[in-house]
Design a protein around this nucleic acid. Sequence first.
DNA 1: CCGCCCACGC
DNA 2: GACGTACGTGGGCGGA
Length: 785
Amino acid sequence: MPEVQEKFGVKDPLQVIDFLGMMGDSADNIPGLPGVGEKTAKKFLTAYGSMENLLENTHELKGKMKEKVENAKELGLLSKKLATIMLDVPVTFEAKDFELEQPNIEKVTQLFNELEFRNLLTNFLKTFANTDGVKATIASNSSEEPLKSTSKKASTKTDGQFGLFDSPGTGSFQETEISSGYKTIKNTDHFYQHINTPLSRKLLLTKLMQQTSVCFDTETTGLKALEVELIGIAFSWEIGKGYYVSFPENHSETKTILEEFRPFFTSEGIEKVGHNLKYDIKVLSNYEMPVKGSLFDTMIAHYLINPDMRHTMDMLAETYLNYQPVSITELIGKKGKNQLSMRVIPIKEQTEYAVEDADITFQLKEHFTKELFEGNLTKLFNDIELPLVSVLTAMEIEGVNVNVGFLNELSVALTDDISRLEKGIYEQAGEEFNIASPKQLGIVLFENMQLVTKPKKTKTGQYKTGEDILSYLAKDHKIIRDIQEYRQYKKLQSTYVDALPNEINEKTGRIHTQYMQAVAATGRLSSNNPNLQNIPIRTERGREVRKAFIPRDENYVLLAADYSQIELRIIAALSEEETMIEAFKNGEDIHASTAAKVFNVPLKEVTREQRSNAKTVNFGIIYGVSAFGLSNQTDLSRSDAKELIDTYYETYPKLKAYMSSQVDFAREHGYVETVLNRRRYLKDINSRNAMIRSGAERNAVNAPIQGSAADIIKLAMIHINSRLEKEHFKTKMLLQVHDELVFDVHKDELERVKPMIKYEMENAFKMQVPLDVEVGLGNNWLEAH
DNA sequence: CCGCCCACGC
DNA sequence: GACGTACGTGGGCGGA
């Protein structure tokens, strides 16, 4: 009905609302029909989409009407009837449907005459009958096939689209349906509504507050949660239905609008469903909007259900819902400098995209709730992973202070050393080349200089120049030692010293890493942008970088708390290997203790080399090392390595038995699990390919150990965080590095917090082996170690 | 733009 | 005879 658009200058497709508004305005003077007001009507209907929803939920509207009408309910029925008659469609249809239809002019005329709505009738006919008189003409299309009412759910045809069973010319999307096999937004019933007025937001909020579980999804200007601006938020709590609240570009205006939804976000009683909620919560934190109540994160749910798979929503939608969502790439382009901002995408497409995501996510929840239960994962999900979301969010928002000046000085010094080494290397090689290029370096070392007769090659035919290769040659060639040093400094400079200052957030002046909670197949976290879990510590020069990590200010001190040998303690406890358990109970140096036993010498007479070899075996056990691998890593010959491993298993027989039992369990059940029932499926455990199979067997041993350690530190993090909050400490948890936690401790709290952290870490999970935590303090991360 | 090589952590 | 330690992230190179 373009006439309506012209007449009222309305671009919004929901012309019917304007018509109703007009009707309301005109009806102001008519007894029995209160004025609704065009704007009011529009807003209410925008929020609720259908008259039915509108009438069921607009308490406020009804309240206002009460002044004018004795029986609000009666008015509701009247309006409903009006809408039905005027538009000749059942009111269960959504507002968007209305624009496809012409009002049934005959019926409306009849009704208005009956009701003596003279002004209204005049206006109505002016608008729809295209006459200025009272003569009622029956619109020619009113006899056409009525809108399909067969759909049970919210049944909206997107604009310009036809339904599945509609008239000819609709073959195009059926073809795509056949070719992809997935349902898409084009052939799926949905009602996604854009919300952008105060009243409609109020109505949405009212509706939100009546729910027990709602999915929300933020649309933003980018990927860095702490730097982006909010563009919109999609909400969904019903299959195929949802709302998209859009926000202006102005930050404080956005904040004001978002503030309207505070009751929802801070409601303890409404479960918040989302996909990667940590991101959304961080975005909202930019507007000082906390998110309370229980969470349900579909990304994490799926991570527990199958940690080895990918957990993108697109993939989950295809797998679990047989549905292919609108691709973000199609919408805003491939990532790169030409990628569009969501902001410039037409609001209709934004709405479709955003609400679809929320809709899908909400639907996924049902699937995953069931699968979590079936996998015995509900407790892990609810008691560990979901509470951890909030802990990690807080850590990421908190960030860590860094000494940029120090890093800059370090960089200058490294540049000096690098160029000095560079010169020397060129001299020794007799030519200039790019030392940082393994390809060029290999040619120089092994072709031109021929340092080795049979150099090893990679599968792509390049010469191997890795650290293990170079270290064999280091003794005999100064150039190799220089190259090793060069490599080390280059690495330090590019990956850490020069990169870290670029990661500082302009607003906070701190580095905010991101913890990935659904990446590592064993249950560990990972860290990126920047990765703060691989800051150097082993080499003298490298560990300097740690000095750059400093407390918040002079009132604080960094505290680093490390689990000592947690993985070995876990394997000792799980295997119930008494000898090893005793060693831990007695507080022995486990590697020395192992050495004493396998080399059959008194503890005090263990040599450095023996301890070192024992240590290598201890770690090898965790990772599943072979005699070959062990001999490669130590000075031992292959046969000595084999003997050492054999003796090791004789010393710790139950350990060997445990490892076999894990492999057996995996063969039988297809998965292994941690102390908190975190699962890892090992599909290759029965592979005929020996190499693939043994890889799975190593995983069968390693995953429960590494994963249990991850479980335990996560538990400790949750406990510590909750105590820091409850007891109102200023101290903040900053970093997690697999078996270590780093805190910014207020000096006044040190005496209370230090033992608390140690206690919570050591007692996070009870086993037959005690857990031991070493706590250090310092004015930088290195000192705190 | 992406795969490869290399190197940092636990 | 070959192959053979888990889990990650990221920078630089070089070919497409």
